[in-house]
Design a protein around this nucleic acid. Sequence first.
DNA 1: GCATCAATAT
DNA 2: CATATTGATG
Length: 327
Amino acid sequence: MREEEEPNWFARWEEQLPSPEELMPLSQTLITPDLALAFDIPSVLSSPNPNPSLHHHHPAPTLHPPPPAPSSQPPPDFDSPDHLTTASSGGGASGAGAGEEPARTLKRPRLVWTPQLHKRFVDAVAHLGIKNAVPKTIMQLMSVDGLTRENVASHLQKYRLYLKRMQGLSSSGGGAGGGAGGPISAADAATDQLFASGSVPHHFLGRGPGPEPFMPFVPVAALQHHQQITAAMQQQHQQQQQYYQQRHMGHFGSPTGGSEGYDHGFLARTVPQPGMHRMVGPVAVGMVPPPPPSAPSAASYVEDLESGSRRGGGERRMLTLFPTGED
DNA sequence: GCATCAATAT
DNA sequence: CATATTGATG
């Protein structure tokens, strides 16, 4: 009965609406510049593109490993906004030997959930609604290449636990009881790193074991229609511009001299493979897949740059985390 | 096959 | 501690 209300989400949505630049033929969006470079293919951007207004601003959530450097690579600052930050804990000697590209059974480096990545995750969950917030859907909505269902599933587990904690937390007077059964304590601190980053929409959270508060459904059709560029929209253009530091890379492109363009499982996701109908295009507004009542279009939301590293509390600085733009 | 939870392993 | 991986179950 109370399904229509809360223009809030809608307003937010409007602000997050993808700009025209976002809505572009998939012919181009599927390949990110980095990828093109990495593969040594003539940048699609340089191609005689009939569409002059197509600037790929919001790089598809291309979360990928550092591109190979054919020669020298002085500029350390150039990175895609969201790389899949992977940490290679090689520890030491790991293979490094040679010859190996089973590509099929290769273990990928540990995925590092950076605030940005988590942001996307949370946004996706928030926009999907608890109902559809399942690993697969989230993964698709995030459109992050390299992300696997297991990755999301694993993170989702943790995320849910976090939410549960917050709910169960009711008061307790701030004192947290001195050592009492508060399962929460350090957890908050740790979780604070990402979950409590301030972007956690606890909306649908609490409502206890009851039915969902009903997630509104967005008329996708409306999205593909008149998209007037307003000042507000332009504002959102200034998002993303973080500098990462990750010094390690998995075994993708040989960091030094490896100029091979193999199909690392990771990148595979950005290329439209014939036979694979992965509609996870960055912008699939023309067609929403599932029939379910709630089927927001992918990439219909653009994350706003969120700070992400603050939490002083102790002094734990993630060394691999980007320099917090602000302090 | 997928989602979730739990336990376990890195 | 954060993820990954696996097993059990619905």
